[in-house]
C-alpha cells in the first residue's frame, strides 16, 4: 500500500479547480506542490506509474491511500 497526505493551503473561491497545496508521500518522505486539481491528479498518476509495488505485485491491485489534511 502507498500512503499520501494532501495538504491544502489556499483555495480560490471563484475557481474550485485552483487549489494550492502539497502532496506528501508518507513512505518516501517527499513532498510536491500543486496549484490546481489537475496537477494533483497528474502527480498521483505519475506516482502510480513509477511505483515499484505496481510492477512486482501480481496478486493484489494496490491503490494509493489518501489522507486529506487542511
Amino acid at each position: 500500500m502507498e500512503n499520501y497526505i494532501v495538504r491544502i493551503y489556499r483555495r480560490d473561491r471563484t475557481d474550485p479547480q485552483r487549489v494550492n497545496g502539497v502532496l506528501e508521500s508518507v513512505e518516501r518522505e517527499t513532498q510536491q506542490a500543486f496549484a490546481d486539481l489537475d496537477t494533483l491528479s497528474a502527480l498521483l498518476e505519475s506516482k502510480l506509474e513509477t511505483s515499484p509495488t505496481e510492477s512486482t505485485c501480481s496478486t493484489h491491485h494496490r491503490r494509493p491511500t489518501l489522507a486529506l489534511a487542511k
Binding site: 500500500m1 500512503n3 497526505i5 508518507v26 513512505e27 518522505e29 491511500t65 489522507a67 489534511a69 487542511k70
Partner: peptide, 15 residues
C-alpha cells in the same frame, strides 16, 4: 518508521 495506522491519529492531533 512510518506505518499507515499511525497517520490518522498523527494528523488529528496536529490539526
Amino acid at each position: 518508521a512510518v506505518r499507515p495506522w499511525m497517520l490518522s491519529l498523527r494528523e488529528r492531533l496536529r490539526s
